[in-house]
């Protein structure tokens, strides 16, 4: 597929940024000491020679904490997306394959879940199970599976009466084999696009929750709770508000750019 020059530059920038952030996240254990070290003699220093992106109210290096935030925010979001894709694919595939009562039950369940403002649902569960890394990931995952379920259901319904599936059935294949061997591999493209777009949604929700103080709890850094430190130093330290926000923005923008590319790639392949 040919891309226009602008699109190619956009895609390459997005990939480069995500590689950078990914590397920072994976290497976090190596420099986490730097991110936690407090220098009370250099509190709220502006970006400069001693701290490249400035220091926070406890004299911690903002750049190192942003790297830690990348590790935390990305891993929470990736786990959340994995959960939502697993739950959504499984429910959608089951309903699509079985049809009838199962199918109606799933559609009903999806309709009910879609009635809740997602943020309300997530906050209510957090109020009961408490905030924290693991809980946030699970709660985001369990409240965002509906799109994937609908998509997989539709894919499975359209695939299950194709010849190659019927042939497999004639040869005596069971439901599990057909799902795992024929239906899901063929639905993988749309599922992948859906999960990439789900990732940007998960990052925005996680950072939003942590910003409100209901997600990842300090001193563990997350891009969200770094921003809430920024709120408490508003007017004193612009770097505390600017850089964590830019990190979130660039990451979500990059993920969306790649998702868009994948989506148009998929559409192109299907129409030809």
């Amino acid at each position: 597929m040919k891309l226009s020059k602008e699109n190619r530059i956009g895609r390459n920038l997005a990939l480069a940024w995500l590689l950078l952030v990914g590397a920072a996240a994976i290497l976090w254990p190596l420099y986490s000491a730097k991110g936690q070290a407090m220098h009370f003699d250099r509190v709220l220093h502006a970006p400069g020679s001693s701290f490249l992106l400035g220091s926070d109210a406890l004299g911690r290096d903002l750049l190192a904490r942003l790297g830690g935030g990348a590790a935390v925010s990305l891993s929470v979001s990736v786990v959340a997306v994995l959960i939502s894709v697993l739950v959504g694919s499984w429910l959608g595939a089951w309903a699509g394959l079985k049809g009838g009562l199962w199918d109606r039950a799933l559609s009903m369940l999806i309709d009910i879940f879609l009635c809740f403002p997602v943020f309300f649902l997530i906050l209510a569960v957090i109020a009961i199970v408490g905030p924290g890394l693991f809980n946030v990931a699970v709660v985001i995952g369990l409240t965002s599976w509906m799109g994937t379920a609908r998509l997989v259901r539709a894919e499975v319904m359209s695939l299950k009466s194709r010849e190659f599936v019927l042939a497999s059935r004639v040869l005596g294949a069971g439901d599990g084999w057909i799902l795992g061997r024929h239906l899901l591999p063929n639905a993988l493209g749309p599922i992948a696009v859906n999960s990439v777009l789900g990732l940007s949604h998960a990052i925005l929700i996680e950072t939003g929750l942590s910003f409100l103080g209901l997600g990842v709890q300090p001193p563990t850094p997350s891009w969200g709770n770094l921003l809430s430190d920024g709120k408490s130093t508003l007017g004193l330290a612009w770097w505390m508000t600017l850089f964590p926000g830019l990190a979130i923005f660039f990451t979500v923008l990059s993920v969306n750019t790649l998702g868009e590319r994948m989506m148009s790639g998929l559409k192109g392949r299907r129409t030809t």
């Binding site: 940007s200 925005l204 950072t207 939003g208 910003f211 921003l227 920024g230 709120k231 508003l234 007017g235 612009w238 508000t241 600017l242 964590p244 926000g245 979130i248 923005f249 979500v252 923008l253 969306n256 750019t257 868009e260």
Partner: peptide, 21 residues
């Protein structure tokens, strides 16, 4: 496309610090 990727709470903070503070 950019606006879809903007965290609303960050936009709020930036506006608050620039126009408000």
């Amino acid at each position: 496309f950019a606006a879809f990727s903007l965290p609303s709470f960050w936009v709020a903070l930036i506006l608050m610090s620039f126009l408000g503070v």
